[in-house]
Amino acid sequence: MAKIIGGYFTSHVPGIGGAIMRGDQETPYWKPFFEGYPPIQQWLAEAKPDVAVVFSNDHGLNFFLDKMPTFAVGAAPQYDNADEGWGLPVYKSFEGHPALSWHVIDALVRDEFDITTCQKMLVDHAVSIPFELVYPGVESWPIKLVPISINTVQYPLPSPKRCLALGRAVHRALMSWGGDERVLICGTGGLSHQLDGPRAGFMNPDYDMFCLDNLAANPDALTGHSAEQVAELAGTQGVEILNWIAARGAMGDVAMTEVSRNYHIPISNTAAASVLLEPA
């Protein structure tokens, strides 16, 4: 049985990658955001996870509209990043854990989640930036990756309720795994932001606080809205909260301690946040 040691939730705004590249962490604009990460870095240095199961959304690097899976699970030996077209550096590759991936895939389909499987999968800034934030400057990632991609691009999106259920099914899969890996669960993206249309620049601190305050103890509270309602509340790109909801489900229905929380406005066009939860 895998041991779930914690859950790391973070925004993945591409601009963070630019700030890291320029070394802007201590500047007045960026400092309040980067201050959220040292507690998570220290916690990870002690907790030493072996594997990260990461829920994120692709932004047009791996998936195009010709084939758009609602839920996709990676089963690759290695996951590369690549040029996304807007000037970010190409980030380090992740080593995969194909045996665990296939176990998760098998368990999910038996659990009636009809996911897509990917033996080749590029991972974009939504996976790379969260780890650049918590393992700054490492030569190679100290964790293996099991990536799970949720469609937040093309409607209909999966509902928050379905994403939480997917996460809970991933939790059951991890509990039935024969290995003893120490697993970190990650959900990336958000919080509220909107890039497109005349409402571009919209944020919603009230809704973000509702999500942050319920994430640990009452994630079901986040499932009362449809994906369309979340787009209205959180902004059209704020639907990335679906990744957080699924990740919370994957941590299991046990009491959680909030080890750290940071919420800051604005980072680029986004209300940015980081949270670390640990099973109590």
Binding site: E35, G36, P39, G201, M203, N204, P205, D206, M209, L212, D213, T257, E258, V259, S260, R261, N262, Y263, H264, I265, P266, N269, A271
Partner: peptide, 20 residues
Amino acid sequence: AMLVRWADEIPAGARVKEAV
């Protein structure tokens, strides 16, 4: 400037920063 002003909408008393 509009993006920055959204910070004014953070509810009073909201827990925005915590580290154990």
